[in-house]
Write a protein that binds this DNA or RNA. Structure first.
Length: 471
RNA sequence: GGGCCCGUGGGGUAGCUUGGUAUCCUUGUAGCUUCGGGAGCUAUUGACUCCGGUUCAAAUCCGGGCGGGCCCA
């Protein structure tokens, strides 16, 4: 009997266990925080990337690919930026036997790689907006404990970078980014919330940062992405200027948008139970698995029918896997449950006689039959139901973990808190340090007003912030 | 930056104090058999992190490297 840890008892160990048992990543590579993407994990990540590409292409971003290394001289042009990343970049100091005159950094993010080139590409207002993105690996020397997909040193990363004629146009880009996020998150069945980060927590060099966070089952928040407005903070040192209609030279206003493999970490954390993972159908490497049920006298018949079923579903566009290993069905059920395949299809003598396939939903355990005649539509329908049910459940769970407080006497465990804050840095730090909580920021685009008191100093305030323990 | 702990088949472990044949579970492989919720039988592959020292003899003791983890700043 193989047992695994229970999710509610100890989320950290449970997460580790499931990543290993579902074989999503191999952490035995001998560098801390640099794990190997296994075929199963990589398939899931590529499916996530697929939706990112789809939405960015649809909003007229162009995919590019910049070099991994950045010369120190370019890296140091924006002062806050270098200060923010100083302690966590990898340096390349030698080439062969020679020490380099100009050291190279492995990109922790690509602003400083792209912007010298943007300065060459952008000349006229007609070149704007410039909207590019890339999906690459970035490097950050994490000193804290690393964890597959959630905190790593080599990060599979999506980043988009845009240049605009004005601050307003850049602001519109940020709104578009929020739209894009909602579409991608729906595919991944991921609930999330947006907060404008505090000044001391914004991206180094940014005018402001919108953090994208989600809540793990243990009530800790996990940042899964961010959107930044740079104004002209980078275009000035990097001299990204354009000539407007009147012949005047102006600095471009810039934004960026980034998300990483943490999206996969969040999916694992949120959609799963004590039996293992539950993959959202849109990103599942295999959306359905076929388990043939053989017996003494019908072996060849069932095998042949199973192959036909696989071909039919595959032709219909379903990612399907026929498990024809020489093992007993029960053992196969357990294997695919750990790996989170959304739909299991059983095909045995009984089913063939009745011209049906028996199915079992991974998320609810519900069983039933689908007529072979309409197998494609039948499977597609169930996958869609699983997808919306996963999203609903996750949203309800997130909602149950949000709690408003107006006093420091009653700080609940395992919740994301909403509380009043006067906005001054002193109160903010005092709150964060005393309670080991992080202020995530002011809810983004929250229309309803807030009337309350700063939870530290008691002053009346119209601003609320979200705060949580972080993963 | 300072301190502490740990490295045994693919995974999880016993053995280390008191030096002498490396334990158990799981996994892998082959065959037989079986197949509607982790079957069984038989055979079998596979490990002491590396380098040096002590010793007749080192997984075990000592030193160093490499790798990993934790705590403090």
């Amino acid at each position: 009997m193989v047992r695994h840890l229970e999710k509610e008892d100890n989320f950290g160990d449970w997460y580790l266990d499931i990543v290993e048992k579902a074989n999503l990543s191999d952490k035995r590579y001998p560098i801390k925080g640099m794990n190997v993407w296994t075929p199963y994990g990589w398939k899931a990540m590529r499916n996530i990337d697929h939706f990112i590409r789809k939405e960015l292409d649809a909003t007229r971003h162009d995919e590019v690919c910049f070099p991994l290394m950045i010369p120190e001289t370019e890296f140091k042009k924006e002062k806050d930026h270098i200060k923010g990343f100083d302690s966590e970049v990898y340096w390349v100091t030698h080439a062969g036997v020679n020490e380099l005159d100009v050291r190279l950094v492995l990109r922790p993010t690509s602003e400083t790689a792209m912007y010298p080139m943007f300065a060459l590409w952008v000349r006229s207002h007609q070149d704007l907006p410039l909207k590019v993105y890339q999906i690459v690996n970035t490097f950050r020397y994490e000193t804290k404990q690393t964890r597959a997909f959630m905190r790593v040193r080599e990060i599979h990363f999506f980043e988009s970078h845009t240049c605009h004629v004005s601050e307003e146009d850049a602001q519109r880009q940020i709104e578009e980014d929020v739209e894009i996020l909602s579409k991608i998150a729906k595919r991944l069945c991921l609930p999330y919330f947006l907060s404008v980060r505090t000044d001391w927590d914004k991206f180094p060099g940014a005018y402001y940062t919108v953090g994208i966070d989600t809540v793990m089952p243990n009530g800790k928040s996990l940042q899964i992405g961010s959107i930044h407005h740079y104004r002209t903070n980078f275009s000035e040192p990097y001299e990204i200027t354009y000539e407007d209609e009147n012949g005047e030279h102006k600095h471009a206003h810039q934004t960026t948008y980034g998300m990483s493999e943490r999206l996969l970490g969040a999916i694992i954390g949120i959609h799963s139970d004590d039996k293992g993972l539950i993959m959202p159908p849109d990103i599942a490497p295999f959306q359905a698995v076929i388990i043939p049920i053989l017996s003494k006298d019908n072996g060849p018949l069932v095998t042949e029918a199973a192959r036909a079923l696989e071909a039919k579903l595959s032709e219909y566009g379903i990612r399907v896997k026929l498990d024809d290993r020489d093992a007993r069905p029960g053992s196969k059920y357990y294997d695919w449950e750990i790996k989170g395949v959304p739909l299991r299809l059983e095909l045995g003598g009984r089913d063939i006689e009745n011209k049906v396939v028996t199915f079992a939903r991974r998320d609810t355990g519900e069983k039933g039959t689908i007529e072979i005649e309409n197998i494609g539509q039948g499977v597609e329908l169930i996958l869609r139901m699983i997808s919306s049910s996963l999203l609903e459940k996750a949203q309800a769970s997130q909602l149950s973990k949000l709690q408003e407080i107006d006093s420091l006497d009653e700080i609940p465990e395992g919740k994301v808190l909403r509380l009043g804050w006067c906005g001054c840095e002193e109160c903010g730090h005092k709150f964060e340090d005393s309670f080991d909580l992080k202020i995530l920021g002011n809810p983004y685009a929250k229309k309803e007003g807030y009337a309350g008191k700063c939870i530290i100093c008691g002053k009346d305030t119209g601003m609320s912030v979200l705060a949580a323990r972080t993963m």
